[in-house]
Simulated scan of single mutants.
Amino acid sequence: MNLEVCVERALSLLTDDVRARFTESPMAVLREDLKLTVRPAEHLSDARDDGGACDGVSFLQDGVILYAPTPWSRRENFTLAHELGHWLVDQAPDVYDWLADQDEPGRLLETACDRIAQRLLLPEAAALTVIGAGPLTAQHLIDLYDASQASRPVCAIALAKRLPGLGAVAIIDRATQEVTHASVKPDPEQGWPIVFPWRGQQLTQGHALLGLASGASLSQRLPWWTPWGAQADFYVNAVGDEKRVYAVFCDSDLWKIETFHAPIQRDFDTRPLLSGSCCGTTFQRRGYPCQACRQPFCPNCGDCRCERDAKHAATCTRCFLQFSPHLVVDGLCVECRA
Results as ranks from 00 to 15, higher is better:
R266V: 03
E307I: 04
D267E: 07
Q295Y: 10
F260Y: 15
A292Q: 13
F249K: 00
Q295D: 09
E258G: 05
W255Y: 07
L274G: 06
R305D: 11
Q284N: 12
S277D: 13
R305V: 13
C250D: 00
D269Y: 10
C293M: 06
F268T: 09
R308S: 11
N300D: 15
G287Y: 10
P272K: 02
D253V: 03
D269K: 04
G280E: 09
L273P: 05
Q265A: 05
C298F: 07
S252H: 04
P299E: 02
D303W: 08
I264S: 00
G276S: 11
A310C: 12
F260C: 02
Q265W: 01
Q284G: 08
C279Y: 07
W255A: 03
Q284D: 08
R285S: 08
R305G: 07
Q284V: 08
R285G: 00
F297S: 06
T281I: 04
P263L: 00
C293I: 14
Q291T: 10
F283W: 04
K256W: 07
P289Q: 07
D251C: 05
A313K: 04
G287N: 06
S252Q: 09
T270L: 11
S252Y: 00
I257G: 02
R285A: 02
C304M: 14
T259G: 14
G276A: 12
L274H: 07
C298H: 04
P296G: 08
R271K: 11
R308P: 03
L254Y: 10
I264K: 01
A292G: 13
R286C: 06
F268S: 11
D251L: 01
Q291I: 10
R294P: 07
I257T: 01
D267Y: 09
K256R: 13
R286E: 03
G280S: 14
A310L: 15
R305H: 14
A313P: 09
D267M: 05
P296S: 13
G302V: 12
I264C: 02
T259Y: 04
F249V: 00
K256G: 09
H261Q: 05
D267T: 12
R271W: 03
Q295L: 12
W255P: 01
D267A: 11
C278D: 05
A292I: 15
F283Y: 12
R308N: 11
D269W: 11
A313N: 06
C278Q: 03
T259M: 04
P263K: 01
G280N: 06
S275W: 03
T270P: 03
F268R: 12
W255Q: 02
L273R: 06
N300H: 12
P289W: 08
S252G: 04
C279D: 12
F283G: 02
P299N: 09
Q284S: 12
D303R: 10
G287P: 02
L254H: 03
C278K: 06
Y288F: 15
N300W: 08
T281C: 10
C250N: 00
G287T: 07
L273M: 14
G276Q: 07
H261N: 07
F283C: 06
P263I: 00
L274S: 03
S252T: 06
T270I: 14
Q291K: 05
A310N: 13
R308M: 13
F249N: 01
H261P: 04
R271I: 11
R286S: 05
C250P: 00
I257P: 01
R294F: 15
A310I: 13
D303V: 13
I257C: 05
Q265K: 15
R305Q: 15
T282C: 05
